[in-house]
Design a protein around this nucleic acid. Structure first.
Lengths: 203, 203
DNA sequence: CGCTCGTTTGATTACGGTCAATCCGCGTGG
DNA sequence: CCACGCGGATTGACCGTAATCAAACGAGCG
């Protein structure tokens, strides 16, 4: 399947017949409340499995960020697939595991962290796929793209766009980051940001 | 294994050698930040699997609420166990699935809901194991025990004890609940509470 | 050039947090 | 049996962070 930018290919609450493997592009996953409040529960990348949670209906809506390509399988086909590709079994297990661990970190973020800590956590998380270890070491500036809008960041962190924007500006004034056009950030002190993300305030 | 009340049998950050099946009692699962902020990521009941997320180290601490009995298995034994008990496979899958769905609801709760909505959600969640369907129907009062302390409720909902207590009092004044000694609540209008939990405000 | 939409900035509000003072249930010991 | 004390829960006064409302800014595009 190919899905155009901005289109939803999974609808929250719809009967969950199929699951998907994302083979190209990125997607945002979110739930809505009746009055429009939105919480982004995650971003999906190439290789991710979606809609595995085989309850009656999907727990979130999935919307393409840019163009997205997918493989769709009916839930009933899982067993056959696993039979044909035995390594898939471990893969599924592992996927679910790591997703759960991420979720637990997200609960701490949303339940207990301040706006500054949330944004710092977000930046570190965005950076980690690039350079996993370079963060603790006090090593140098590290530029990363922010493919998502401020609104998406806000809905991911449980904040408002205004607070996200303000906090970015604060970080800039404090010399922690530098901003190039709202969709590209350079971390000037990854170590400090990483500490802040963990709730440690260095003098 | 038997664990006494208040003892921790899984330590956040410790190397994750084993996983556990809870065979008696209840436990609370939480993470801590360096300054002591706490987030309860869940309560475990009889039959639940703990420490399955097989990353390097445990993502949370598990503390017994009352006396707890467990079976412990080394992670390396999973494959052998699944081989001997084929039905376990589906069970594990299902467990991970439903846990993920619950987590996504928790993200919405912590990221977007107000204090009133959080407490209403909590009460409905506590009630649902008892009477799953009786909630939507406007049916009558429904008494339930609250085995955990106010502090635990607060850390579960991302609030403070004061806010939890105040909100309980508000609900009482509004005739939504009635309280018997801090560890037993009666839902007088389950329907209204359920709506509030979902973010619907009836006139 | 001017419009639109997303972002930034500013002013004010409000919800929930903090600090502090009771209150209450319960177990203990006189 | 009751006085006492302890810890958890409730209530109150006040504060602070992030939300809300509103305006200005700026990049991209017709």
């Amino acid at each position: 399947m190919v899905v155009q930018a901005g289109r939803c290919f999974i609808q929250e609450g719809a009967p969950a017949h199929d699951f998907y493997v994302l083979t190209g592009g990125r997607a945002k996953l979110f739930s809505l409340m009746p009055d429009g409040r939105r919480q982004i529960v995650g971003f999906a990348e190439v290789g991710d499995f979606l809609g595995l949670a085989s309850s009656e209906s999907y727990a979130f809506t999935a919307e393409a960020l840019g163009e997205v390509t997918l493989c769709r399988f009916p839930h009933s086909a899982i067993d056959r697939l696993v039979e044909r590709f035995p390594r898939l079994h471990g893969r599924l297990q592992q996927e679910a595991s790591s997703e759960l661990v991420k979720m637990q970190a997200r609960l701490m973020l949303l339940g207990r962290k301040t706006a500054r800590e949330r944004l710092a956590s977000f930046l570190v998380e965005q950076a980690s796929p690039c350079c996993a270890h370079a963060l603790k070491d006090e090593h140098g500036p590290l530029t990363l793209p922010l493919p998502m809008s401020r609104t998406d960041i806000a809905d991911y962190l449980g904040l408002t766009i205004e607070t996200v924007s303000r906090t970015f500006s604060l970080f800039r004034k404090e010399g922690l980051i530098s901003i190039r056009g709202a969709s590209s950030v350079t971390l000037l002190s990854p170590g400090l940001l990483s500490d802040m993300a963990g709730g440690i305030k260095r003098s």
